[in-house]
Nucleic acid binder design. Sequence first.
DNA 1: TCCTACATCGGACTTTGTCTAAGTCAAGAA
DNA 2: TTCTTGACTTAGACAAAGTCCGATGTAGGA
Lengths: 138, 138
Amino acid sequence: MSDLLERLRGRGWRLTAQRRVVAEVLDGDHVHYTADEVHARASERLPEISRATVYNTLGELVSLGEILEVSTDGRAKRYDPNAHHDHHHLVCSRCGTIRDVHPAGNPLSDLPVVERFGFTVTGVEVTYRGTCPSCTDV
Amino acid sequence: MSDLLERLRGRGWRLTAQRRVVAEVLDGDHVHYTADEVHARASERLPEISRATVYNTLGELVSLGEILEVSTDGRAKRYDPNAHHDHHHLVCSRCGTIRDVHPAGNPLSDLPVVERFGFTVTGVEVTYRGTCPSCTDV
DNA sequence: TCCTACATCGGACTTTGTCTAAGTCAAGAA
DNA sequence: TTCTTGACTTAGACAAAGTCCGATGTAGGA
């Protein structure tokens, strides 16, 4: 992920302590934090960091295509650093846990032209819902 | 949709003017209103209806499986009365318009067991994203 | 008609996110 | 190294969407 910082600098980003910390929090796969969780974790390393900066930085990373925004429940959006590998999501309806999954097939080609209503279709998200093992056992 | 009211009464629902109006607003297919839009339309017929009641009623209809909750953008949830026919959604990234679509194939069977991580998978939503004809022309 | 459990009301509150004005600082220039 | 400047950050006000609560109203059975 450290080359993420280099890539961003190459695009004219100013490399500040705040941005570095946000990027570090998102480092690692299979992590789907809300903006608040990112802020909490960033604050551990940089206590003065403000919410506005976290929101700004996340928004910029999304525009740059470095992370994905995922809104699975109409509550807080989650941020997915695994933006460079095609995948979809499996969400626990009880606790909200998210796993990355890789279904077979290509849903984009499953949408016939007559079902596109003149839209220019650019992407597709598949969200599986269910109950995770810990929530099932309860 | 009038038999919806009968069905609900059969389940012990008290039939109030407010609930009747909310159900009537959602009548008709291919409608995806936000809670606020439902409230605005319900208010035209029943000016005293409160937001809390609209939220309560929508929540109950969702629990009863009579309508679907759709959150495509992390902003206001939308409510889809077309709950009894399998379908997915095509969303315009610019104006938020939603169309019901019916892709080929069954995404549920596309998720291999090893990709289920012990979850009990109960459903799947496919959201196509793109630009609708009016927004493309601009 | 009367009763009462269930529904509704309005408004306060919470959560999530955006905006702004003032202050700060990264990085190139000298 | 120090200076300069415009991009970045901050705290807090604000906004949108949704939830909660005590008081009041009413649908539907007795």
